[in-house]
Design a protein around this nucleic acid. Structure first.
Length: 145
DNA sequence: ACTGAGCGG
């Protein structure tokens, strides 16, 4: 009887204290939710490139504002604030393309963690993207709708 | 509507 009461108490603690679930499950046989000390943290962002991913933007920040803020650290070839195609409103992130990797590096160091239109923005190297699938060199695809 | 992590054309 005593064990049964203990089991019920454990269940009650489980639901009442979600923060302690990890430690609780770790002590239970058959439950190895133990997080490895390594490899649980954020993986390194990306490999250096001239393309930058900028997040944390204000909804009022436009492409010109983004370009203007990053142009101080290097030659910006292309800048784009991603907007929703139906509503036209900013999604709060964008991309900045520098002419050189040095410019991109300077842009990250200069703008990452800085304020832009009242919001702290984050600048990092963008992930490599495959060439535009939809455009196909400006011609529509044959044999495919 | 514009919300708050994210990787567009």
């Amino acid at each position: 009887m005593a064990m049964r009461a203990a089991a019920i108490k454990v269940a009650a603690v489980s639901t009442a204290a979600p923060r302690g679930l990890r430690a609780l499950y770790s002590s239970l046989p058959g439950f190895s939710f133990n997080l490895p000390p390594t490899q649980v943290e954020k993986p390194p962002p990306a490999e250096p490139s001239t393309n930058l991913f900028v997040s944390g933007l204000s909804k009022r920040t436009t492409t010109e504002g983004l370009r203007n803020a990053f142009a101080k650290f290097g030659e910006v070839v292309n800048a784009k604030v991603v907007t929703d195609r139906v509503s036209g409103y900013s999604k709060g992130f964008g991309f900045v393309n520098y002419a050189t990797l040095e410019g991109a590096e300077a842009g990250i160091k200069g703008m990452d963690g800085q304020f832009l239109d009242g919001w702290v923005i984050f600048a990092e190297y963008a992930r490599p993207r495959p060439p535009l699938p939809s455009l196909n060199n400006g011609y529509p695809r044959e044999g495919q709708r």
